[in-house]
């Protein structure tokens, strides 16, 4: 079905993506192609539209204009649930735990539905995800009892439980200690090594540059810089955005 064009191997492709909330134009034409296996970092000032971009990619929000293609298929009007089943996993910047379920059951939801596993296989996948996110010790705790950092880690665990091909991460490193941050970097590196495509929004640039091979800077709803991390961080656009945006 997919024509053998230059972008055919991109796992994710967005074209002219726009998103408005009423009169507020949050995204105003984003074009981005992410090849399978790439780890891409996104930086940008507060309110640039980074989280909104993830939401439009995974279907939590509907695009006002533009197209989202995943694995060669147009998913612009596909439900978020079906996008998750097709292999998109995402974390939420403001955690959304299932507070009355245990941490294990939270991950089990991802393993059962996103990954489509049943019975023992689902249980094992959920545990594996908890192990990767270093949450095995709190597996039986109600998710509602977790402190903020625990809830953020649960976001990662749940997304991993869905066995994603594309992992969308939204500010998971904020507030971590040096050691915790290093262990998170190691985890994401490992996932990257396993061939999972990653898009990671992060204000902790040090964590990003330790993992990603490509960095995109988003400002006021458009991509203003795109390339190798050190080049992007040094570019005039990013310097201006950051000085102006007061990161």
């Amino acid at each position: 079905m997919t024509p053998p064009t230059a972008t055919a191997e991109a796992l994710l492709e967005v074209d002219g993506l726009a998103k408005s909330y009423g009169a507020l134009d949050v995204l105003t034409g984003v074009d981005l192609a992410v090849p399978a296996g790439q780890a891409l970092g996104i930086v940008g000032p507060n309110g640039a539209g980074k989280s909104t971009l993830l939401s439009v990619i995974n279907g939590t929000e509907r695009a006002t204009r533009g197209v989202v293609r995943f694995a060669g298929r147009d998913v612009t009007s596909v439900s978020p649930a079906d996008r998750a089943r097709a292999g998109m996993g995402r974390t939420f910047q403001i955690p959304r735990p299932f507070t009355h379920l245990t941490v294990f059951e939270n991950a089990l939801a991802g393993a059962s539905y996103g990954a489509g596993l049943h019975g023992h296989a689902a249980d094992m996948r959920a545990l594996e995800a908890l192990e990767m996110a270093d949450m095995l010790d709190v597996a039986n705790a109600p998710a509602g009892s977790l402190p903020l950092l625990g809830r953020k880690r649960l976001e990662l665990a749940r997304a991993l439980a869905t066995e994603p091909r594309l992992l969308l991460l939204d500010e998971i490193a904020g507030g971590l200690t040096e050691a915790e941050c290093d262990s998170l970097i190691a985890t994401i590196r490992q996932l990257h090594g396993e061939g999972i495509t990653i898009i990671w929004i992060e204000h902790v640039v040090k964590a990003l540059t330790a993992v990603v091979e490509r960095l995109v800077c988003l400002a006021t709803g458009v991509i203003v810089a795109d390339g190798p991390p050190d080049e992007v961080m040094r570019s005039a656009e990013v310097q201006r955005v950051y000085l102006g945006g007061g990161l």
Partner: peptide
Amino acid sequence: RDNEVAARALGIH
């Protein structure tokens, strides 16, 4: 019941 948006993002119809 606990969070519809997250449920959808995990593949739940």
